[in-house]
């Protein structure tokens, strides 16, 4: 019915008492997400209250997981402390750590990624909007919303969306929902050059999920993650896939907002990635307004029903 999370997944929030974390904890609770714990070192024993919800706060991830059964963390702690927060999730043996924090030094992520090798915990992000598994209610209420994405634009259904960019994910989801096509899970993997879960990792999960019937993959200039995923799709994925790459007009050598969105050579331009998408049978969205329509074209060509 989804990948990595379900509407009943229990989540904890690292940085729940910060302004950013608190705001999005409230929105997740309003969406019907099972936020069962918060972690702020030194504030263990306090309670985060919102609209009748009482979320206990713990000093450590391990304490929170043990007491509440939370298996997933949403990380909202400031950049200097974010790498440590991720490692704490790995040490506590969580299934999933979703790092929302923007601006973590690359060196910290290089070290974190190395330290997480062989560990059970999967990292999504950092610098990402998080994940949404839409619920069955009105405006997809009752779903699992981890991070900062707008939950209400989703609709429960069968399309998987994976993207480096937050607002482009919302754009794609909004287009799908407007056409009456729901989503199984949307995953924002983040705009940093060193991140946990890659496009390919998510594509593999969507491919293996019987409830995901079609996939939208949104990428950017920089790196070769989209190309790696596209080649795997060509060899292994039978589901319809639509793709979009942002940054066709970006000048070389300039970092376009995301630390990872920078053209370094001939291989990581938008044109090069789009060419590989086409070669791999991915239906390319000509403009960002065309993402849902591109998936409809791909689904039609394969005789797949999306809704």
């Amino acid at each position: 019915m989804s990948i990595l999370i379900t509407p009943t997944t229990k989540i904890l929030i690292q940085g729940i008492t910060g302004e950013f974390g608190a705001r999005h904890t409230r929105l997740s609770l309003d969406y019907g997400t099972q936020v069962v714990a918060g972690v702020t070192p030194g504030k263990g024993g306090q309670v985060f209250e919102h609209a009748g919800h009482k979320v206990p706060i713990f000093n450590s991830v391990a304490d929170a997981a043990k007491a509440t059964g939370a298996s997933v963390s949403a990380i909202f702690v400031p950049p200097p402390f974010a790498a440590d927060a991720i490692l704490e999730c790995a040490d506590a043996g969580l299934d999933l750590a979703v790092a929302i924090t923007e601006g973590i030094p690359i060196k910290d992520m290089v070290r974190v990624k190395r330290a997480m090798q062989g560990k059970k915990t999967r990292l999504v992000g950092p610098n990402c909007p998080g994940m949404v598994c839409p619920g069955p209610g009105k405006d997809s209420h009752g779903g699992c919303r981890i991070g900062i994405a707008p939950g209400y634009i989703n609709k429960q259904g069968h399309v998987g969306v994976v993207s480096r960019s937050g607002t482009l994910t919302y754009e794609a989801v909004f287009q799908l929902t407007s056409l009456g096509i729901g989503q199984s899970t949307t995953v924002g993997i983040g705009g940093d050059p060193v991140n946990g879960t890659s496009h390919l990792d998510v594509i593999k999960l969507f491919n293996a999920d019987p409830d995901t019937h079609g996939i939208i993959m949104i990428g950017e200039i920089g790196g070769n993650a989209e190309v790696e995923a596209a080649r795997w799709i060509k060899a292994n994925c039978k589901k319809p896939v639509a793709g979009f790459i942002a940054g066709a007009t970006a000048p070389a050598g300039r970092r376009m907002g995301h630390a990872g969105a920078i053209v370094g050579g001939a291989e990581d331009t938008a044109a090069a990635k789009i060419a590989v998408f086409k070669e791999c049978g991915i239906e390319v969205a000509v403009t960002p307004s065309d993402m849902a329509d591109a998936l409809l074209r791909a689904a039609k060509a394969k005789g797949v029903k999306l809704s």
Binding site: A246, A248, H258
Partner: peptide
């Protein structure tokens, strides 16, 4: 624009329809 990905693709779509973006 709000968001880096959307800002980049806004530049792209201007170009797609024959214009030229002045900035990101």
């Amino acid at each position: 624009v709000n968001g880096a990905g959307l800002a980049m693709s806004t530049m792209d779509i201007i170009k797609h329809f024959g214009g030229t973006p002045a900035n990101f």
